[in-house]
Design a protein around this nucleic acid. Structure first.
Length: 274
DNA sequence: TTAAATTCCTGTAAGC
DNA sequence: TGCTTACAGGAATTTA
């Protein structure tokens, strides 16, 4: 499922092909995938707009248009954003298409429909609660271990739950939460507020490392993730614990444990992670 | 205020 | 072989 590294890969792939392009046509095959504003207004507003930049915030892809307007894409569990020739056969569960002035077509496909499309100024999207306030970017050099320590202090929830909380840190999902906790040798059920500064520093570094390596490898194609060209990522073969419950820990050889925390499966090594 | 549980949704895989 | 059932999870919403 798409988390920060996967979303970053797609945004970076699309950027050189989208910036400077104008949207000439928009079709919503499943209008309820648009959560803001009303689908008709969404279409009216996006058509004719020129794309000025493509960015990412947490797990959101931000396609900036003129006049501070943003087309925001959240891929949810199974969302895919692809740039194709319009003659390409339409895949099942394609919910929206955007034609560009260079003849290409941007398509949004999402079998499980947990994803969504938004359009508006940043302020309007925040005000309408269409987009929630997000915590800092974990790979931003300005986000240090001390910041993380302050955010974890006094929190009584388990580490795994805190890492998944987008308002505490943006962009981390189940894959990279498990991966970074393993690298940091911390149990996912540790109470976040109980960590020493030293442990938080280790987790901070591990999280950055997990995410940056995954970006280098173009993300993890577990489940349905594909990049903007429909290609697989490379990180799924290099994951240390995610999806490996029962298999031997690469460090100590002990079978990896599976527990449920905050309704999510969590894989970890009982020997290496204390 | 915070944390945990529930809900949405469909493809996939396990089990009978 | 073919059907049923459980499971996967991001985040909004509800409950405690």
């Amino acid at each position: 499922m798409p988390e920060l590294p996967e979303v970053e890969t797609i945004a970076a792939d699309l950027r050189p092909h989208l910036v400077g392009r104008t949207v000439v046509r928009c079709e919503l095959l499943f209008p309820t995938i648009v959560r803001h504003p009303e689908p008709e207004l969404f279409i009216d507003s996006v058509v004719g707009m020129r794309i000025s930049s493509v960015g990412r915030r947490g797990k959101y892809i931000l396609i900036r248009l003129v006049d501070d307007l943003m087309l925001v894409v959240h891929l949810g569990m199974s969302g895919q954003l692809r740039l194709v020739e319009p003659s390409t056969p339409l895949a099942t569960h394609t919910h929206a298409t955007l034609n560009l002035d260079d003849g290409m077509q941007l398509r949004y496909r999402d079998p499980r429909r947990f994803g969504r499309l938004l359009l508006g100024t940043e302020a309007a999207l925040l005000d309408s609660k269409a987009m929630p306030p997000l915590g800092p970017e974990p790979i931003d050099p300005g986000f240090g271990a001390d910041d993380m320590y302050q955010r974890f202090r006094r929190r009584k929830a388990k580490l795994k739950a805190i890492l998944l909380d987008q308002s505490t840190i943006a962009g981390v999902g189940n894959i990279y939460a498990d991966e970074s906790l393993h690298r940091a040798r911390l149990r996912p059920d540790r109470i976040a507020g109980s960590l020493s500064k030293k442990s938080v520093r280790r987790l901070h570094e591990s999280l950055r490392e997990s995410l940056l390596v995954a970006i280098q490898n173009r993300g993890s194609s577990v489940d349905t993730y594909r990049d903007a060209w429909g290609e697989f990522g490379g990180q799924q073969e290099r994951l240390l614990v995610y999806g490996r419950a029962g298999e031997p820990c690469f460090t100590c050889g002990r079978p990896l444990s599976l527990v449920r925390i905050a309704g999510r499966s969590s894989v970890f090594c009982r020997r290496c992670q204390r």
